[in-house]
Nucleic acid binder design. Sequence first.
RNA 1: GGCCGGAUGGCAGAGUGGUCAUGCAGCGGACUGCAACUCCGUUUACGCCGGUUCGAUUCCGACUCCGGCCUCCA
Length: 461
Amino acid sequence: MLKIYNTLSGQKEVFKPIVEGKIGMYVCGNTVYDFCHIGHARAMISFDVISRVLRNLGYDLTYVRNITDVDDKIIKRAAENNELPSDLTERMIAAQQEDEKALGNLSPDREPKATEFMQEIIDMIQSLVDKGYAYQGDNGDVYYRASKFADYGKLNNRKLEEMLAGARIEVTESKEHPADFVLWKPVKAGEVHWDSPWGKGRPGWHIECSAMSTNCLGDHFDIHGGGPDLKFPHHENEIAQSEAATGKEYVNYWMHCGAVRVNNEKMSKSLGNFFTIREVLKLYNPEVLRYLMVSSHYRSPIDYSDQSLNDAKVALERLYNALRGQALSTAPESSDYRVRFEKALRDDFNTPVALSVLFDLVRDLNKAKTESPELAESLAAELSALASVLGLLYQDADYFLKNSLVSSEGMNSDDIEALIEERTLARKNKDFARSDEIRDLLADNGIELLDSREGTSWTRK
RNA sequence: GGCCGGAUGGCAGAGUGGUCAUGCAGCGGACUGCAACUCCGUUUACGCCGGUUCGAUUCCGACUCCGGCCUCCA
């Protein structure tokens, strides 16, 4: 039994797919006008893990995540850069793919782009116009008529009347109601545009997701996910558009990950307090960032700091230490560890508890190394197999331990190996003074040594 | 103002009506030439006030504080 917290109901629910054994999942992707920051990383990693877990549980999953490649911010940024919007979006899509590959995310099954679904977007708007859910204002904008959709606000527990009190909704003369939102906006001079029954122009932000998700997964599908800041208005508007256009229920389970915070404040573009993924990957091995994301529950807020990254690095080192130099056999079909691990993940993807099972396993593995090599090989295989469900421990242990911190400075491997060789000789000759001198020298350079019967290995701290 | 979600040991972070989370750090021991890695043992906890209960960190209510959304944002 799988339980999923559904934003729509505000509680954990037993998951039931529409079609037995199959799942359609749509996740809102990024607007590609800038490099991804840590908040994007969290959303991308969270849903990557969720998709892996669903497949591990045996579901036939179709995972769709869109790319927003037409938007005000893209047009603005491209103009600032003096380049074509399409050149900007291509660059940023390539950058995002690089980042994700580094972080160990698997590609979604489909990554539809808004510009490739223009006809479907126009068709959906037409359908809304035909049914009286949309109208063209005298400024040329086509608006969604929020007041006609009885369930408007059901995802966020809001009522139209109450929202007016907030008074932060953009007031436009051309709108019938302040909560109405744009489906299609007329082209401004020199901007990219498409032909439509309402004149040349381009789509509003929300409609593309309704059009792409229903075209890729059907009018009614299982899971829709995204970052916490999309809950309102974006997802609320998606529901309104889709259900009005198709006349069917849109999505069964809505999932939202938690925010990444910096100094107890949400990391966001508008606050400017964000770090890009590539900045962080200049300092830390990408798996450290992934571990940080997986080490708390996907819905909890995460505080991002040097210390939180460092804690993640140290914890990951413990896992990799257990695998270093350890042969793997075959993982058992089922074990107490696997049962506990999967039980945790079936409970709304509780990755912190799943990780705690891994650490219990590591303790037994480390003990088995001296007591039963065969058991150790099997436990190591089990550790590796379970970790892969979270997308962790995919690197060579020795490589990771030498590169958990990515520093461009510092000693290179050859110099380190040479010093270790000299130290080994000194130790053979019982010249412990020289031996310790070398170890201290390496330690000052962030290199920690580990002597064993097989020889000396090292870790970059 | 409205709507959500939090408050757990030195830090991070799960969870539960009555027995262990887990990682880091600390302390004692084993291993080691000394270390490191590892192992064994161990200290520190559930915001505040009431209620339900044989018993509440866990359920209910009030309070305080914090965060998010209500505007583009993963």
